[in-house]
Design a protein around this nucleic acid. Structure first.
Length: 578
DNA sequence: GCCGTTTTCGGCCCGACTGTTTTCAGTCG
C-alpha cells in the first residue's frame, strides 16, 4: 500500500514548511492529513479511485489533489518545491531536543548548516553560540540533546517502559507528603511504544519531592530539577536510556493535570476547543469560567462540566471518541478475562510445564487455559511430531484430571504452511479442544505461484477445526515488519467462517494492532486476547493485549476469552459445524 | 489547508519553562 509513503511525504512537507516559516494552521493541516492516512486501514488508492478522499477527516480538496498526484506520479509538487529549496538533512534536526523550526532555520540561514554533521561542527567551533538569541547554555543543551538522541532508542516498547514506570511510582508514593501518584502520558493511553515516561504526583512541597526523585536509585542522568518538574534518564537494554519525567501538582488540580498530561495532544486540543465554545478555559490547573475554577480535582469532573462522558485513556487519540456514542462501559478490561488460549510449555519451546502454567493461570483467577505448543514444521521451536503430539494431548488430559479449579484445554499452535495447508491432518486437529493457526515461515509477499499470506490465512480459516488465527500479521515491534496482509479480506473470511482473530498480547507483537482491532469489530469478527506465554511470568502480559483491544474499542462481548467455558465451547462447536 | 447546531469567511488550544532578553521568543508537551 502507498499509505505509509504518503504519511512520510506529508510529515516531511509539514517539517519543511515549519522550517520555512509557514503559518501554523497550514502546517497542522498536513500533519492532520498524515495522521488520518496513518490510521487508515484501507488502501488510499482505492479510496481515491472511489472519490472518497474528502470524506476522510482533515482531508479537503487541496490535500486530496496532492494525494491523487502522488498516487499517479509518486511525487507532489509541494514536496518537490520544498526539497529543491531546503537541504535534505534539515528535518532530522527537528528531532533534537531544544532544536525547533526557528533554530533550524537560523543555523541554516546564518551558518549554512544542512545536516547533523554540520550542526556538530558549528557547535564545536563555537560559531553557533554567537548567533542572536542563542548562548553557551542553550548550545550546551542542544549538544546534550544530540547525545541523548544517539543513545536513546527513539521509541521504547510499552512492555519495557511500564515496569520502569511502576517501580518509580512505587518509590515516589512512599515519599513523605505525597498524596497520590499516577502514570500519565502515552503509557497510560497504552500506546505500543512511548517516547518518555510521565509520572504525576499530588503534593505540596514540589521542590522537596523533585529533589528526592532525581536522587532515586537507577537514575543515570538528571536533565532538569525544578520546583514542579524533574526529568531524568534511566538505563535499560544495551546502552539505551529512557527519559522519565515527574510533575508535582496540588491535589486540587490533580484531575485536570492528569487529564492534561495523559493527552494525547490531539485529544486535548479537541477538548479545549469544546471548552472555548462554552466560553470556558481548560488548562492543566483546571477548567475555568473566568477566574472561577469549576473542575480540576478529578478527571471525570473536567469531562462532566464540558457535557462529555469521561473517556478511557486508551481512546483519547482524537479518533472520534468525543463525538461517537460509544459504549465505554462495555469496554473489555483485565478483570473480564477468564482464560488464556495460547500458551507454550516445555513440550515445544516453552520453559515451564503444563502443571506450572496451569497453576500460574489459576493464581491469576483464570477458569481455563489452552496449551498450544508448536506443530511439527516449526523445527526451530521444537515443534511436535504427530506421535509426540498424540502423547502431548494425553499428558494435557492427564494434567487436567489432576488439577482442580481450572480447565486445561488441549490445543495446538498449528503452522499454516507456505501452500496454505495446515501442519497437522484433521484427524489430529479434531482431537484438540482448541486450535490456533499461525504463519511462522515464508512470510514474504508470495506471488509467482507462491501463495500470499492473505491466501494462506483465508485458506486456513476454511478448516472447521481452526478456532483462531494467531498473531495475524506476524510483526515484531521494531524488529520485523508485518506481512503484507489484506486485512479487509482476512476479516471478511473470518466473519464468514466464524474464525476468531487473535490479539497477541506479547508487548513485542501486539498483533492485531489497535486500528485492526477496530476494523475487525466493525467487520463482525470475534476476537481472542492471548499472551503466547513461553513462561509463567509472561502470562502477566495479558494487560498489554487488553490495552490494545481497548484502544481498538473492543467490548467484552467481542472477546471470546471473556466468556464462560461453556459459552466458549459453544463458539468452538459453532465453527466446527459451519 | 480545513471546516461549519453561532460561520462558505474567518476562525483555528494553552500555559510553563528557559535562556535570552529589558519585555519576549522559542520550545515543549
Amino acid at each position: 500500500m502507498i499509505n505509509s509513503k504518503l504519511v512520510r511525504a506529508f510529515d516531511r512537507i509539514a517539517d519543511l514548511l515549519e522550517i520555512d516559516g509557514e503559518k501554523a494552521f497550514r502546517i497542522n493541516s498536513y500533519r492532520r492529513a498524515a495522521r488520518t492516512l496513518k490510521d487508515l486501514t484501507e488502501d488510499v488508492a482505492v479510496v481515491a479511485a472511489e472519490n472518497r478522499l474528502t470524506e476522510l477527516p482533515g482531508i479537503g480538496k487541496g490535500t486530496a489533489q496532492r494525494i491523487e498526484q502522488y498516487i499517479d506520479t509518486g511525487h507532489t509538487d509541494v514536496l518537490d518545491e520544498l526539497q529543491a529549496k531546503l537541504p535534505e538533512g534539515l528535518p532530522a534536526l527537528l528531532e533534537i531536543q531544544g532544536m525547533g523550526p526557528k533554530k533550524v532555520a537560523l543555523v541554516y540561514d546564518k551558518l549554512g548548516v544542512g545536516n547533523l554533521g554540520d550542526l556538530k561542527r558549528v557547535i564545536d567551533s563555537g560559531e553557533m553560540e554567537k548567533l542572536p538569541g542563542l548562548g553557551a547554555t542553550s548550545v550546551k543543551r542542544i549538544a546534550e540533546g544530540i547525545a541523548f538522541l544517539e543513545t536513546s532508542s527513539q521509541r521504547t516498547p510499552m512492555g519495557i517502559a511500564l515496569p520502569i514506570a511502576e517501580a518509580f511510582a512505587a518509590q515516589i508514593v512512599a515519599m513523605i507528603g505525597v498524596k497520590r501518584v499516577e502514570i500519565a502520558g502515552s503509557l497510560r493511553r497504552g500506546a505500543e511504544t512511548i517516547g518518555d515516561v510521565d509520572i504525576l504526583c499530588a503534593a505540596k512541597d514540589g521542590e522537596g519531592i523533585v529533589k528526592q526523585f532525581v536522587a532515586l536509585e537507577g537514575v543515570k542522568r538528571v536533565l532538569a530539577s525544578g520546583s514542579t518538574k524533574g526529568s531524568v534518564t534511566v538505563p535499560f537494554g544495551e546502552g539505551k536510556e529512557l527519559q522519565v519525567d515527574l510533575r508535582v501538582v496540588p491535589a486540587d488540580s490533580f484531575g485536570a493535570a492528569w487529564q492534561y498530561f495523559t493527552g494525547s495532544k490531539e485529544h486535548n486540543v479537541r477538548l479545549r476547543e469544546i471548552a472555548v465554545r462554552k466560553q470556558l478555559r481548560l488548562n492543566e490547573w483546571g477548567l475555568f469560567d473566568g477566574d472561577e475554577p469549576i473542575a480540576g480535582r478529578d478527571e471525570a469532573g473536567v469531562y462532566k462540566e464540558l457535557d462529555l462522558r469521561w473517556v478511557p485513556p486508551e481512546l483519547r487519540e482524537d479518533r472520534g471518541e468525543l463525538e461517537r456514542g460509544a459504549d465505554f462501559g462495555g469496554l473489555v478490561s483485565s478483570q473480564d478475562i477468564r482464560g488464556d488460549l495460547h500458551v507454550h510449555t516445555t513440550a515445544s519451546d516453552g520453559r515451564c510445564t503444563i502443571e506450572e502454567m496451569a497453576e500460574a493461570a489459576k493464581r491469576l483467577g483464570y477458569k481455563y487455559l489452552a496449551i498450544c505448543d508448536h506443530s511439527k514444521s516449526s523445527t526451530i521451536a521444537n515443534g511436535l511430531s504427530v506421535e509426540r503430539m498424540r502423547r502431548h494431548i494425553d499428558e494435557i488430559r492427564a494434567a487436567n484430571e489432576q488439577t482442580r479449579g481450572i480447565e486445561i484445554l488441549a490445543g495446538t499452535e498449528c503452522d499454516i504452511l507456505p501452500d496454505g495447508s495446515l501442519d497437522y491432518a484433521d484427524e489430529i486437529l479434531a482431537q484438540c479442544d482448541w486450535v490456533v493457526a499461525s504463519i511462522h515461515s515464508a512470510m514474504g509477499p508470495g506471488g509467482k505461484g507462491k501463495s500470499s499470506p492473505t491466501e494462506r490465512t483465508v485458506a486456513a480459516m476454511q478448516n472447521p477445526f481452526v478456532s483462531a488465527i494467531g498473531h495475524p500479521t506476524g510483526r515484531l515491534l521494531s524488529r520485523r515488519a508485518p506481512m503484507e496482509l489484506d486485512m479487509a479480506a482476512v476479516i471478511e473470511a473470518a466473519a464468514k467462517t466464524h474464525t476468531m482473530l487473535e490479539i497477541n498480547a506479547s508487548w513485542q507483537r501486539l498483533d492485531l494492532q489497535d486500528v485492526h482491532v477496530r476494523q475487525a469489530i466493525e467487520g463482525g469478527v470475534e476476537l481472542v486476547i492471548n499472551t503466547d506465554a513461553h513462561h509463567v511470568d509472561q502470562l502477566e502480559q495479558m494487560v498489554y493485549g487488553v490495552t490494545t483491544a481497548r484502544r481498538g474499542g473492543a467490548l467484552r462481548k467481542s472477546v471470546a476469552n471473556c466468556l464462560s467455558l461453556t459459552e466458549l465451547r459453544k463458539r468452538i462447536v459453532l465453527k466446527r459445524q459451519t
